[in-house]
Amino acid sequence: MTVERFRQAAENVGTAVVPVADIGDACRYIAGRCDGPVLLPSQPSLERGGLSAELEQQVKLLTAFDKSAAEQAAAGISGANFGIAETGTIVLESSAEPVRLATTLPPKHFVLIDPAKIVADGRAAVPYLQNLHHLAPQSFIAYITGPSRTADIERVLTIGVHGPKELHILLLDNLSSDFMES
């Protein structure tokens, strides 16, 4: 129910929401859509799942990169701390710079999230948002809802102005039940 609501809300704003069976499935989905270097910053849930080992067989995977390299990449990959069903939002603790570079500069952003980590709405997200603030003294926490968009020319909705032009959310069961990791 919550997941279905999440999926609909996300699709309404132009996100592709795809259930995947396992990490291999996720890798094939990502690799089939990337024709250049792919950024994978350190993400505990993805490391545990063995994403990099599998994906680097199929694409040029960068796990360490600076902003110039990020700018040249075809895509960035991240996990998610949790999702918000009502708006189709993923919440991503992005204090580590590579996470921000990977999710802002490339034209595509792939997110892997465990559907168990989806809360009902923005109000229900607040306690988790508060907890994320307790992880470290500094923080950059991102609510991401759909691809980058603008309507600044004649109010015509146009996708992909400064940020990612595509947002893909891959739903993977048993990836992580911990809201404090991504």
Binding site: A9, V13, E97, Q138, S139, F140, I144, G146, S148, R149
Partner: peptide, 19 residues
């Protein structure tokens, strides 16, 4: 703008890592 939420909401606190 009649949006449920904007594409991005960024919660920024303090001097985060840079380079």
């Amino acid at each position: 703008t009649g949006q449920q939420i904007t594409s991005y909401v960024s919660w920024i606190r303090g001097a985060v890592p840079c380079g």
